[in-house]
Amino acid sequence: MTDRTFDVAVVGAGIIGLAHALAAAKRGKRVVVFDRDAQANGASVRNFGFITVSGQEAGDCWEKARRSCAIWQEIAAAARIPILQRGLIVAARYPESEAVIDAFLASEMGEGCQKLGHEEASKYVPPLTSDVRCALHSPHEIRVESKTAIRQIAAFLTERFGVVFRFGEAVRNVETGRLATARGVTEAETIVVCPGDDTRTLFPDRSLAYGVTRCKLQMMRLEPASPVALKTAVMSDLGLARYRGYADMSEASALKARMDDERRDARANGVHLIVTQSADGSLVVGDSHHYAQTPDPFGNAKVNDLILDEFDRVLSLPNRRVTENWIGTYASADDRWRFTDTPMEGVRLVVVTAGCGASTSFAIGEETIAALYGTQSGA
């Protein structure tokens, strides 16, 4: 083989592309990954680094998240990626929220989770406000630092499996057995296109058929006035009314109605709360959700205030200071959380159309490569 001939070519070096590269490399395939930017710069690095299981939509999404979280832990150990937090506390302030937690715990997805009182929950998250009446504790989640973890996975794939990365090389055409960039043609037996929210450059007609648009979100980093240690990530009532693993249950109807009435602005801006902690003690906080084919690039101070208002209702950290703000975007569709399409023989287009790419990608990568090359014995 030459440096322009591979078994598998992956377009996109975000977490979905890396997941496919890993699954193919584990099978002994010679893999090349292309990305138009100098490094991953999209949703894969503009997030919480929060690998979420509990709260994912029941069925396929939840199952993919469970499998992906297991793979994340394997890769984190092998690639020397620190796991900064384990588990999740969903802080509940309303009786309607407690009913959702009880229903969730009675479902298949509640295995290993438990409901805690304020005192017990505060052992995981000491600054919980007195308004928090109870909490859902899930042990299944992990948290990594996305900005560095994505780079470490790419380095691991190169060191362990010889995966070739071609950063700064935009793919402008794909056909069966070959793809083209400004630097020439690369031949590959199979090609997996993982474009993130750029669904207009390659196979736009295929993405259009799935009704794909884009979601814009606002996030920030906070510096507590004094040191605080959160053992788990934190969510709140707004998450119980939005995350489909909770919100799709019939018991969530009363909570959603109350949130629509009392938290109208937050609900209208797709605000819910996630808080994770970095190694330096700072907190990553968000987020909001606005949808458009081309979202504007501007952050809205009122939306940030809605996020911070929910933060202050759940966590008592006076004089906390915002040190960073940023905007993320991801692909979105009304009627599905992902799709895998076959534009032509030997080519797959893989898009996660919800904000759960980091939580589900490794299992999707396994699925795609298994469909292309067959299930491995013992897998």
Results as ranks from 00 to 15, higher is better:
residue 181 T to D: 07
residue 182 A to T: 05
residue 182 A to N: 12
residue 184 G to N: 02
residue 186 T to Q: 08
residue 186 T to M: 09
residue 188 A to Q: 00
residue 188 A to G: 03
residue 190 T to L: 02
residue 192 V to G: 04
residue 192 V to P: 06
residue 193 V to S: 01
residue 193 V to R: 05
residue 194 C to K: 07
residue 195 P to H: 08
residue 195 P to T: 01
residue 196 G to P: 03
residue 197 D to I: 03
residue 197 D to R: 11
residue 197 D to G: 13
residue 198 D to E: 02
residue 199 T to L: 11
residue 200 R to N: 02
residue 201 T to G: 04
residue 202 L to T: 01
residue 203 F to N: 01
residue 203 F to L: 02
residue 205 D to Q: 11
residue 206 R to T: 07
residue 207 S to N: 07
residue 207 S to Y: 05
residue 209 A to R: 13
residue 211 G to A: 05
residue 211 G to M: 03
residue 215 C to A: 14
residue 215 C to T: 08
residue 217 L to S: 15
residue 219 M to W: 07
residue 219 M to D: 01
residue 220 M to H: 03
residue 220 M to G: 06
residue 221 R to G: 00
residue 221 R to Q: 05
residue 222 L to K: 00
residue 222 L to M: 10
residue 223 E to Q: 15
residue 223 E to A: 14
residue 225 A to N: 04
residue 225 A to W: 03
residue 226 S to C: 11
residue 226 S to I: 07
residue 226 S to W: 09
residue 228 V to E: 01
residue 228 V to A: 13
residue 229 A to H: 15
residue 229 A to E: 15
residue 229 A to T: 07
residue 230 L to S: 11
residue 230 L to E: 00
residue 232 T to I: 07
residue 234 V to R: 04
residue 235 M to N: 13
residue 238 L to H: 06
residue 239 G to Y: 15
residue 239 G to I: 02
residue 242 R to N: 11
residue 243 Y to W: 14
residue 244 R to E: 12
residue 244 R to S: 15
residue 245 G to H: 11
residue 247 A to M: 12
residue 249 M to N: 03
residue 250 S to W: 09
residue 250 S to N: 15
residue 252 A to T: 02
residue 252 A to D: 09
residue 253 S to N: 09
residue 253 S to F: 04
residue 253 S to K: 14
residue 253 S to I: 10
residue 253 S to T: 10
residue 254 A to S: 09
residue 254 A to R: 11
residue 258 R to I: 02
residue 259 M to A: 09
residue 260 D to S: 15
residue 261 D to C: 08
residue 263 R to D: 12
residue 263 R to F: 15
residue 266 A to G: 12
residue 269 N to P: 03
residue 269 N to G: 12
residue 270 G to I: 00
residue 271 V to R: 04
residue 272 H to A: 05
residue 272 H to M: 09
residue 273 L to Y: 11
residue 275 V to I: 06
residue 275 V to T: 06
residue 276 T to L: 12
residue 278 S to E: 11
residue 278 S to V: 02
residue 279 A to N: 10
residue 279 A to K: 07
residue 279 A to M: 13
residue 283 L to D: 00
residue 284 V to C: 10
residue 285 V to P: 06
residue 285 V to Y: 05
residue 285 V to G: 00
residue 287 D to N: 15
residue 287 D to H: 13
residue 288 S to V: 04
residue 290 H to M: 12
residue 290 H to A: 15
residue 293 Q to T: 06
residue 294 T to H: 14
residue 294 T to S: 08
residue 295 P to K: 08
residue 295 P to Q: 10
residue 297 P to A: 09
residue 298 F to G: 02
residue 300 N to I: 10
residue 300 N to V: 14
residue 302 K to L: 09
residue 304 N to D: 06
residue 305 D to V: 01
residue 305 D to H: 12
residue 306 L to H: 13
residue 307 I to A: 09
residue 308 L to V: 04
residue 308 L to Q: 04
residue 308 L to P: 10
residue 309 D to I: 03
residue 311 F to W: 00
residue 311 F to K: 00
residue 312 D to P: 02
residue 313 R to V: 02
residue 313 R to H: 14
residue 315 L to P: 03
residue 315 L to A: 04
residue 315 L to Q: 01
residue 319 N to D: 15
residue 320 R to S: 12
residue 321 R to A: 02
residue 321 R to E: 11
residue 322 V to I: 02
residue 322 V to K: 08
residue 323 T to A: 05
residue 324 E to Q: 14
residue 324 E to P: 07
